[in-house]
Design a protein around this nucleic acid. Structure first.
Length: 616
DNA sequence: GTAGGGTTAG
């Protein structure tokens, strides 16, 4: 539980105290007379000093240097630290602006905790700070996920008479949101307005809109977007891009395109990020014509595509098997001075493998290495997967063994792919050997996918006892098997004559905190039908709805075939009607069961009626 | 001349 250290409110202006306390009442409140982030609470904050003479050559040089570094950061952390020490010794002392610029440079370098410790040093040395310095440090605490320290610092400075700005509060709002405390952030936002502490600006609104978007709530985000406009706060490119990206991710691509037109009408220019989000959204729907349209529009507006834009296109084309289009994009990007990287080539290799053309993928791999672009683990995984799918597990193993010499460590996906490859090729003895020698003995950490692959492979090859004992090892190791893993195991048990074990695992699912899903139910129904236990199958089927789990077309077909094979034609008829009522159709294998039954010339009227009704 | 925000890809 995070604790917010709240201040002794009698030191605070009333409105500030109310706003902040309102925001944080749901958290443990500790009232303190000083704040924990201040290493020496008795040091008063000094007022802002007069500017020293900047015509002093060392000071002028310092100002020039810091102006640049605060924008791009230092090349090395040590350079920043050395400069800081030098600044402490300068006479007269550099300005608060110079110190803040140095801290900002550290933020640019993401050295947040270093910035905090330099700030502490400044406090110990009684170097004056201002609200800009403090906001920078509050931002650092937020990036370090220590919003509690950030609030504590805020309380301390208010106590000392500093007035936090809209930037200070906006920083805190972002900090709360990044800790997934959206509600608290919104409460703070509302209270800041209510107590008139700040007038939220476009950044404040955009941060909250982004928080709402990341919670997956585009309609609420759009609502706030409209509210900000109504309150006279004009959205800018970032605000529009945030909303457009969110709409695209939620497949509301036409609404997103509408906003693109709206922003251009209002004279707010979209940029490469805005267009990239939209292009990604359009690619997800294979709207290639619209994609080309947007690319043209970018050219017309002189917005140049970047490596990300090209990667989105290449990946989308490859996934759809449009490899020639992907190759065209690569050619175009090279023409425009952007060079394909390992991500680009991996997309292309994956595209070829999806087409079953692993040899062409290998050509890409080789040309990439010739160009001096180093393959990464994913490059190998793509090729290994390509070969496994083609039953060429030995080629996959060659690549696997080649990885360490390239300085690459196989990932759990690499292992899983090979394991599945062995099983897929019917080489289950080698699969088990690979698992034992290369994975267990080497201490490779397993994930759920590996467990599924192994259990499925073992069960399919009748190693049920081995599967069961592996399953128990998993539980002992504290790896919590999910419902998919259970379903695979229960399926294996029932198909290998251990229906009772499967049933007892199934009955104990609630004890493990697991709920059967459609696949679990369907599998059990199939198992019961196979054993001729139609009553049990039916009972389970009726139980599904009560458990908030609706049968799908597979479930229906499974049970209908069970009824047919057990000569319960009336029940089959009822279920068929019910299934059609739900908009599902009888599948090929149900139809073929009906045909088979007719072939043996069953003289059952109910069956004949069924066939007449459901067979063409 | 100092502080806060939006794809970071497979």
């Amino acid at each position: 539980m995070m604790k917010f250290v709240i201040f002794n409110s009698r030191f605070l202006p009333h409105s500030a105290a109310s706003a902040l306390t309102c925001c944080l009442t749901s958290y443990s409140v500790i009232t303190v007379s000083h704040f924990s982030t201040n290493p020496n609470p008795n040091i008063p904050f000094k007022p802002k000093p007069h500017f020293p003479c900047s015509s002093n050559p060392p000071h002028a040089r310092l100002q020039h240097l810091l102006l640049e570094k605060s924008k791009v950061g230092f090349d090395k952390l040590d350079d920043a630290l050395q400069l800081f020490d030098k600044m402490l010794l300068m006479k007269p002392l550099p300005t608060v602006i110079n110190f803040t610029q140095l801290l900002t440079a550290l933020v640019k370098m993401k050295h947040y905790s270093v910035a905090v410790s330099l700030f502490r040093k400044m406090r110990v040395e009684s170097i004056p700070v201002d609200i800009f310095t403090i906001t920078t440090i509050i931002n650092c605490f937020c990036h370090l996920d220590r919003v509690d320290f950030a609030f504590s610092l805020l309380a301390g400075i208010i106590k000392h008479g500093f007035v936090p700005s809209v930037v200070t509060y906006t920083t805190l709002i972002r900090g709360l949101i990044s800790l997934d405390m959206l509600q608290e952030a919104q409460l703070l936002f509302q209270n800041l307005i209510r107590f008139q502490l700040i007038q939220p600006d476009v950044v404040t609104y955009t941060i909250i809109i982004d928080g709402i978007c990341k919670r997956g709530n585009p309609s609420v985000a759009v609502k706030l977007f409209k509210i900000m406009e109504k309150k006279g706060c004009r959205p800018n490119t970032v605000t529009y891009t945030t909303i457009i990206d969110c709409l695209c991710k939620h497949r509301l691509i036409d609404q997103a395109l509408g906003l693109l037109h709206q922003m251009t009408r209002k004279g707010i220019s979209p940029n490469v990020m805005t267009y990239s989000s939209l292009i990604q959204g359009l690619c997800d729907f294979n709207r290639w014509h619209d994609v080309k349209q947007l690319l043209k529009e970018m050219d017309l507006r002189n917005i140049s595509q970047n490596v990300f834009t090209y990667s989105i296109l290449i990946d989308a084309y490859c996934k759809e098997g449009m490899i020639e289009d992907a190759e065209d994009v690569i050619e175009l990007m090279i023409q425009r001075g952007h060079y394909p990287n390992v991500v680009t080539y991996n997309s292309l290799m994956d595209g070829y493998c999806l087409q079953g053309e692993v040899d062409k993928a290998l050509v890409v791999f080789e040309s990439m290495t010739r160009k001096g672009i180093l393959p990464n683990t994913l490059s190998y995984n793509i090729l290994i997967n390509g070969y496994c799918k083609k039953f060429k597990v030995d080629r996959a193993i060659d690549l696997f063994q080649q990885m360490p010499s390239e300085g690459l460590t196989p990932s759990i996906q690499t292992y899983s792919t090979i394991l599945q490859g062995f099983f897929h090729a019917g080489r289950h003895v080698e699969a088990r050997k690979f698992f034992k020698e290369k994975m267990i003995n080497q201490g490779v950490e397993l994930d759920k996918v590996t467990c599924r692959i192994l259990l499925h492979g073992l069960c399919q090859n009748s190693y049920v006892v081995e599967a069961l004992s592996f399953f128990q090892i998993l539980e002992c190791r504290g790896l919590v098997p999910d419902i998919h893993v259970y379903t695979i195991l229960m399926d294996g048990l029932s198909k290998n004559g251990h229906l009772e074990n499967a049933r007892s695992l199934f009955d104990n699912l609630p004890l493990k905190g697991l709920r059967p899903d459609v696949k679990t139910y369907t599998m059990m129904i199939q198992a019961y039908c196979h054993e001729g236990l139609l009553d049990e199958a039916n009972e389970l089927f009726r139980e599904m709805e009560g458990n908030d789990c609706l049968p799908d077309d597979v479930t229906y077909n499974m049970l209908i075939r069970g009824c047919l094979q057990n000569k319960n034609y009336c029940e089959a008829g009822v279920l068929l009607d019910e299934m059609l009522g739900h908009g599902f159709a009888a599948d090929a294998s149900t139809a073929s069961v009906l045909v088979d039954l007719l072939d043996v010339q069953e003289q059952d009227h109910a069956l004949l009626a069924l066939c007449k009704k459901y067979l063409p």
